[in-house]
Design a binder for these strands. Sequence first.
DNA 1: CTGTATCCGCATTGATACTG
DNA 2: CAGTATCAATGCGGATACAG
Lengths: 153, 153
Amino acid sequence: MVTACTLKHCAGKEYYCALELTLQVIGGKWKPIILWRLGQDGTLRFSELRRIMPNITQKMLTQQLRELESDGVLHREVYPQVPPRVEYSLTELGRSVLPVLSEMCKWGHAFEANHGTVGTADTGRTTGTRTAGRAIVPGNDGGDDLDLAVGEV
Amino acid sequence: MVTACTLKHCAGKEYYCALELTLQVIGGKWKPIILWRLGQDGTLRFSELRRIMPNITQKMLTQQLRELESDGVLHREVYPQVPPRVEYSLTELGRSVLPVLSEMCKWGHAFEANHGTVGTADTGRTTGTRTAGRAIVPGNDGGDDLDLAVGEV
DNA sequence: CTGTATCCGCATTGATACTG
DNA sequence: CAGTATCAATGCGGATACAG
């Protein structure tokens, strides 16, 4: 007997395995970036997050932040002032997700090494790190620099 | 200076950080399950994968398998027979993703512990493991059983 | 058995305008 | 500043039929 798993519910999400649950909580296009940035900077205002991620729309940012908040991975502190001021920071649960993001990032780099990475300004086809065929597996090769999305549209 | 990352391309995917790349390659609704199953069983035929995941449509399964294949994480072996026989297995790169899935799964369990897990047959609201407020962080608490999605529609 | 091909509904995402 | 509301577009995922 290996698996045979039943449908479960947690925090309003449907899933069969914890893997899927994780994807639903911290997956998607924006959440990893938000979480990682908060992990780096500790506390960020709404406007700072917008500046960090120029591509995201206000609606999306608000939506993602609310979901992360209701899932208990980040904390939303409202300062009743005028003009308003809202600060976001990771909870303990949120901080515990950083190793996961780190692992995923490491594997992403291994994948890059396997294929070839090309920057925006491609000087030619398949330029960049070419290591295809060496089948690099993620380990502790020191490549744990976790770069982050900024870039403009 | 913390980040300031540029747009990159790898295997036809656009991303700013390796984190996003990973999500694009092994994320989504079905890929983690496929990969994990192949990691468990080694080699599976198309029909076996279908039986394992009754919810997925034929179209989706084929599509996901093709994407995983073209990304080099799984190998597709076609036996030119009649009736046809196709076997899928992880490549070395594919096997290297298992620790990542494992990490994600561990965090999912920690999340479950933080909130409360409820099975399909809910005998009452918020039944099940209730540990809210204890802020359990993933570590090596032994809870590394990676259950898998099967369940029927 | 292992697939394509086509059509379609719904959920996610985005653009834009407005508000306390 | 930090949102909410509304409308429009996209695209993922699913149902079904057909093919080698």
